[in-house]
């Protein structure tokens, strides 16, 4: 390995700036947060004793924290597969040289250039009973078809979790779709032509050409979407405040309340580390599944 040494130095030089940056602005705060999590660290009280695992132990006994974890898991399980499937479908539909396709690409991206606060406000406004857009649609349908569906449904109150899931999917559709599109465009046309020659149907081409070759992209989207879903916060803060009945009280919102309503920064840090471990475990599982898959593909090839 004659080239090993110069290669090494170049590698460190290239990752250097990013590592330095992450070190100061992410890893350092992470270490501080770890320190806080083993202390009873009230924002304003000068007495901040070391308490060891006490903050963590208390979490396990806190039914509301357990409830928050359950809500977070449910939210993630609902929003990630659905969000990815819709984004992939949109990307496949838009990956054609059809006239007017650019307009749709733009339209699908609009919810993603909006702040989550503004989106959540729009969402509340649209789902209000009577004056909201959804109820107005139902009312119009009633007038048109002679049906009498209720128009006084407060969708946000009635279906809080579903509302937040839909908002998440709506908000993230654009970027996921664009990343899929970039992936789709990297698949050489020649492969599709070869499949066509072999008589593969449209679905078969999708299943046996598109999906496997899209794997690195899909993997990236699965990992990042899962992380984003497990950290859902703003829509909850603006739309539901964790309610009704703590049905949408997710972990990050719970942490927010612990830190800024009670000022228990130590306890909030411990909660963050629990969430961090959950995210880490899920991500590692995903990395492992991905590796196993690519090993299998390598073997069969």
């Amino acid at each position: 390995m004659k080239t090993a040494r110069p290669m090494s130095v170049a590698g460190y030089l290239f990752v250097g700036p990013a590592m330095l940056y992450l070190g100061v602005f992410t890893l350092l705060p992470m270490v501080v947060a770890a320190y806080l999590s083993v202390h009873r660290w009230h924002l304003l009280k000068p007495d901040r004793p070391f308490v060891g695992w006490d903050n963590y132990r208390r979490l396990l006994e806190d039914p509301f924290f357990v409830n928050a974890i359950r809500n977070t898991v449910v939210f993630t399980a609902l929003s990630v597969p659905l969000g990815i499937a819709i984004a992939l479908a949109a990307a496949v539909l838009l990956n054609r040289g059809l006239p007017g396709i650019r307009v749709f690409r733009t339209i699908f991206y609009v919810p993603s250039v909006c702040s989550q606060v503004a989106l959540s406000m729009i969402w509340i406004w649209v789902t209000l009973p009577h004056v909201g857009f959804v109820n107005w649609l139902v009312g119009s349908a009633n007038a048109l078809l002679g049906t009498s569906f209720a128009t006084d449904v407060n969708y946000l109150q009635r279906f809080p979790m579903i509302s937040v899931v839909l908002l998440f999917i709506w908000n993230g559709l654009g970027p996921r779709m664009v990343i899929f599109l970039a992936g789709l465009q990297n698949i050489p046309e020649t492969l599709y032509e070869a499949a066509r020659v072999d008589g593969a149907s449209g679905w078969q081409r999708f299943r046996y050409v598109t999906l496997p070759l899209l794997m690195p992209t899909t993997f990236f989207i699965v990992v990042t979407t899962t992380i984003a879903a497990l950290q859902i916060f703003t829509p909850i803060y603006v739309m539901t405040q964790g309610g009704p009945n703590r049905a949408t009280d997710v972990v990050v919102f719970h942490i927010y309340k612990e830190a800024w309503h009670k000022f228990h920064i130590g306890q909030a840090s411990a909660m963050s580390y629990v969430l961090f471990s959950i995210i880490l475990t899920i991500s590692l599982l995903q990395f492992w599944a991905m590796k196993r898959r690519s090993d299998m593909i390598a073997e069969s090839a």
Partner: peptide, 27 residues
Amino acid sequence: LRFRGRDALFILVTLTMMVPTVVMIVP
């Protein structure tokens, strides 16, 4: 590029994505 500790560093990078930002604010 190939360099020692590359994969470990990469994992470290992805780890930083997983920290909830709420609690990072104070530090």
